[in-house]
Amino acid sequence: MYEAFAVAIVVFLTVGGQELLGFTMLGRPIVIGPLIGLLLGDVKTGLMIGASLETIFMGIVNIGGASAAEPGLASALAVAFAIMMHGGLGVALPLAIPLGIIGLQIKTLIYVAVVGPFASKFDSMAEKGNEKGIVRLHFGLWTLQWFIYALIPFFAMLFGSEATQSVLKMIPTIIVHGLTVAGNVLPAVGMAMLMKILWDKNISSFYFLGFLIVAYLKMPLIAVAVMGTIIAILVAQRDYQLHNFEQKIAAKPAAVTTNTTETKDEQENDDFFS
């Protein structure tokens, strides 16, 4: 019972809380993992699994309401089950992926069916100038939708842990090994999703530079970030100069046609460039 409450409250305050507090990233696996660990008495495991799930869910962000999974609910339940069953990533991973997909579907359902119909209510209240009503509904809807959402981990924890445990016991070790391998490979999917956002032929070589300096020089990530920033500043400076130069060239022919009262100096310049 305590575990069910703890996990439900964490989901409410982090996954729901980040919607109230401007996507401050409270609902990411790296935050939820250790938090669940703290409440269930195993911070280390929570931290480790949270970090592993973060790499897998790294590419998944909620942009404009479109997403592939909801990592918050998935991490909270997967970490809780893993701690209660004294399992590692091998227990957490096969739970986290389907839970993430189911979580997103439920979240979308609430978003469309529960909150959606109130859009017109907001409009009519604005027409009447009902300021207090708007504010009340604005916060009321938040509370309602995330209360409903937090019920899922509550009941999942209440009924699910024993059922899940008995199913997990039947999984042979070679499959668990395969799942651990999958856990190490799955960050590739996350990386691929980020590359889809950032990739551009002109700058793609920087991806391989980043890979190379870690693979061979074993540079820590923070050093790569600083190095990347330096390169980016250099490139931006050069782009800016090029851009100014291009504008100067583009501006000249226009001056000939529009400006009829040029000074002698300008005319000479135009002659020189033409």
Partner: peptide, 10 residues
């Protein structure tokens, strides 16, 4: 550029 380098490193 910074983003892609980080993704490569990761």
């Amino acid at each position: 550029i910074v983003g892609l380098m980080m993704v490569g490193a990761m």
